[in-house]
């Protein structure tokens, strides 16, 4: 199929082994996906190592960039959760930087987008869901169950509201992971399809080329926006766990 169709938009999401590793019968090979996870890690590390190499009162550009990202996430966490969220700042910050760099590296042609795979985003969403639920019960005890029955609702509506709230709570990790994964998948597929059109149309290819440029700008925005949305939703879920009354 891929051989017949040179512009197969799905081909870019295929996982190919770089080094075959088996551990107890489980395939944990180092793949292109793993490689780009390492790239995202390296990019984040590079940003902060360079940015922090010469810490000065008046920052240079790289230091400015690292401080901007720090303040951006710190303010987001403070606005959404308050001072109680401080303990979770390393996780939230790492989460944002990792998704941000995965999304952005994926925009470069011939690369692989780690976050376009549902299993990756679902791993994050599932981890967040489990962690938030545990934090909720640890901080509030059984009082955490109040989130399924918001205050001010008449008692006769409880049989209707409580199941809806439970379903919406349980669907949080699914919506969180699918949102990010689907955005990346759809965006990159469309980019690939239009890039293929340019090749297919030959001289007339300038029309899809213009469209591709606009679309690429939009995808750049989406890459940043989805990292932001994923992170801020995590903050909101965390806030629900810490303050179930709100």
């Amino acid at each position: 199929m891929a051989a017949d169709n040179p512009i197969d938009p799905i081909h870019q999401f295929e996982i190919s082994k770089i080094a075959d590793i088996q551990l107890g019968g489980i395939d944990i090979s180092f793949t292109n996906s793993s490689l780009f996870m390492v790239f995202a890690l390296a990019a984040t590390m590079a940003l902060f190592v360079i940015g922090l190499s010469k810490k000065s009162i008046i920052p240079n550009r790289m230091q400015m960039l690292s401080e901007l990202s720090y303040n951006f996430i710190a303010n987001m966490l403070r606005d959404q959760v308050g001072d109680q969220g401080r303990a979770y700042f390393p996780f939230i910050f790492s989460l944002f930087m990792f998704i941000f760099f995965c999304n952005f590296i994926g925009l470069i042609p011939y690369t692989f987008t780690v976050t376009s795979h549902l299993i990756v985003t679902f791993a994050f969403a599932g981890l967040i869901f489990i962690a938030v639920t545990i934090i909720g019960f640890v901080k509030n005890g059984l009082g955490y169950l109040r989130i399924f029955y918001p205050s001010g609702i008449p008692i006769f509506l409880a049989p209707l509201i409580v199941p809806i709230e439970i379903i919406s709570y349980l669907s949080k990790p699914i919506s969180l992971s699918v949102r990010l994964c689907a955005n990346m998948l759809a965006g990159h597929s469309i980019l690939k399809i239009f890039a293929g059109f340019i090749v297919m149309l030959g001289f007339l290819g300038f029309a899809p080329l213009i469209f591709l440029v606009v679309l690429y700008a939009l995808e750049t925005l989406i890459a940043a926006l989805q990292a932001y949305i994923f992170t801020i939703l995590t903050c909101i879920y965390l806030n629900d766990a810490l303050h179930p009354d709100h």
Partner: peptide, 8 residues
């Protein structure tokens, strides 16, 4: 591919 992705 899931175990490999999750592992890495």
């Amino acid at each position: 591919t899931f175990p490999s992705q999750l592992f890495w």
